[in-house]
Amino acid sequence: MLNIKNLQVGLEEENKQILKGVDLNIGEGEVHAIMGPNGSGKSTTSYVLAGKDGYEITGGTVELNGHNLLDMDPEERAAAGLFLAFQYPVEIPGVGNMTFLRTAVNAQRKARGEKELTAGEFLKTVREKAKSLKIDSDMLKRPVNVGFSGGEKKRNEILQMAMLEPKMCVLDETDSGLDVDAMKLVAEGVNALRDGKRSFLVITHYQRLLDHIKPDVVHIMANGRIIKSGGPELALEVEKNGYADILAEVA
């Protein structure tokens, strides 16, 4: 599904290398997690995958189902099936959540040459999916993320994910700022989308999210590289001993 080879990325504005050769292969239906200390390059990885401005790719390749992702505009990547659940979902005043969702869904459908959803079809689907995420109709009407609590914002990201039905989902610290109940709800939303085909890359600081979204593979990222990969037990190890041991072990 997603193949990252020796990806090297710096900041455009200053001479600073952030990713120093990342390799990552995520197969169809697999759930991978990236853990790592602050500043290790986790969020940069997610932004670069989604095509955010401000980064300079200095080496390596990224392919999504064989297509060169780095050549595409952000909206083309989205239409190709890449979804990023933001760590800090952006507020868009005056734009109703529903309007935003419908515009996004139809933009992707149009880009893929599919028929746009009618208002009725859209409404029916969105209500169904919102219900399971405990998103009420009021939240659907309010402007995108404006005045949403931390938990509401993250649930809203998952709703967008559910509506857009991406192939490759990247979740950037989706657990940050969530209490236990909210995290459970979000994790349930994610698990509901696991269908054996859809792949996930879960970026997180803490092991606790991985109690709810069970990964197949766990990677530890530090200083712009993946320094260790393993099974779910690796996350438990981090939880117990912190990153220091692993960092020392690799160094």
Binding site: A50, G51, K52, D53, D73, P74, E75, R77, A78, A79, F83, L84, F86, P89, V90, E91, I92, F100, T103, A104, V105, A107, Q108, A111, Q160, L164
Partner: peptide, 16 residues
């Protein structure tokens, strides 16, 4: 720019 990137990540082109 963050608003535009957010919209584009969801599939809208820049003008949209």
């Amino acid at each position: 720019d963050d608003q535009l990137f957010y919209c584009r990540q969801r599939g809208m082109d820049e003008e949209e």
